[in-house]
Computed example of a mutant assay.
Amino acid sequence: MSQTDRIKIAKRIVQELKQGQVVNLGVGIPTLIPDYLGEKKLVLQSENGLLGMGPTPSAEEVNMDLISASKEPITMEIGASLFDSSNSFAMIRGGHIDVAVLGVLQVDQTGEIANWAVPGQTILGVGGAMDLVAGANEIIVATVHTSKNGEPKLVKELTFPSSGIRKADLVVSEHAVFKFEEGTMKLVEILSDVTIEQLKELTGAEFEYNSEIANT
């Protein structure tokens, strides 16, 4: 996965976020979002205990006591607050997060997410995935289209453990944007130079699309 692809995904997700929303940023691609907000003002939450996360610091400003959920250095906006994990998860479980932007291992064609365990590999901990899936008002998935092994991450059925029965609302990859409506995966936008047929080959899930998108 190139950094260019990661940035493209983060920038496209910014277009979906609305002024003033409280947005939780998960591990990986989501933590790039603060650097590409432009004039859009959001309240960014990190599950390790920060409300009011700012953009990536310069090399001179790095303080490794101030990190994101990805353990990367961050800054704090004016008025930001720090708190412990119990308060952070009370905020998440209490329905106070407008949008959770999550990285994933897999998403199935109904929007169900797997993002915390790979069968046969050591599990370091579930983290906040299950709480965020259950507690956030909207779920946006940020993911590259295929795994390091070239396997689709958008699949018909999950083969990894589910993160919860709540479904994603939107998926953004380097190739496309998909939304989920009544258990159906629908192509919203193509973001690269792939054709519909190539996108189908890269995508393990079945999805609907209209003729207007197919002809772009």
Rank of each mutant, 00 (worst) to 15 (best):
residue 113 I to Q: 01
residue 118 V to T: 12
residue 139 I to Q: 02
residue 100 A to I: 08
residue 138 E to A: 13
residue 120 G to R: 05
residue 128 G to W: 02
residue 69 A to S: 10
residue 96 H to L: 14
residue 159 T to S: 15
residue 111 G to L: 04
residue 114 A to Y: 05
residue 157 E to N: 12
residue 85 S to M: 12
residue 146 T to A: 12
residue 165 I to H: 12
residue 147 S to F: 06
residue 107 V to I: 11
residue 142 A to K: 03
residue 71 K to Q: 15
residue 114 A to C: 09
residue 146 T to I: 13
residue 153 K to E: 08
residue 66 L to Y: 03
residue 142 A to V: 09
residue 115 N to Q: 07
residue 77 E to C: 14
residue 55 P to D: 00
residue 82 L to V: 14
residue 155 V to E: 04
residue 67 I to L: 14
residue 95 G to S: 06
residue 161 P to M: 09
residue 138 E to C: 12
residue 93 R to G: 07
residue 74 I to K: 06
residue 100 A to W: 04
residue 149 N to C: 04
residue 163 S to D: 06
residue 136 A to K: 00
residue 159 T to L: 13
residue 96 H to S: 13
residue 138 E to R: 15
residue 157 E to S: 09
residue 115 N to M: 10
residue 125 G to Y: 04
residue 94 G to T: 07
residue 129 A to G: 04
residue 148 K to S: 13
residue 157 E to M: 11
residue 123 I to H: 05
residue 155 V to G: 07
residue 151 E to P: 03
residue 126 V to I: 15
residue 170 L to K: 11
residue 120 G to F: 11
residue 169 D to T: 00
residue 105 L to Y: 11
residue 140 I to C: 03
residue 89 F to S: 04
residue 155 V to Q: 06
residue 135 G to R: 00
residue 163 S to I: 06
residue 58 S to I: 01
residue 122 T to F: 14
residue 120 G to T: 09
residue 146 T to Y: 02
residue 106 Q to P: 05
residue 77 E to S: 14
residue 67 I to K: 10
residue 108 D to T: 04
residue 54 G to N: 05
residue 143 T to H: 02
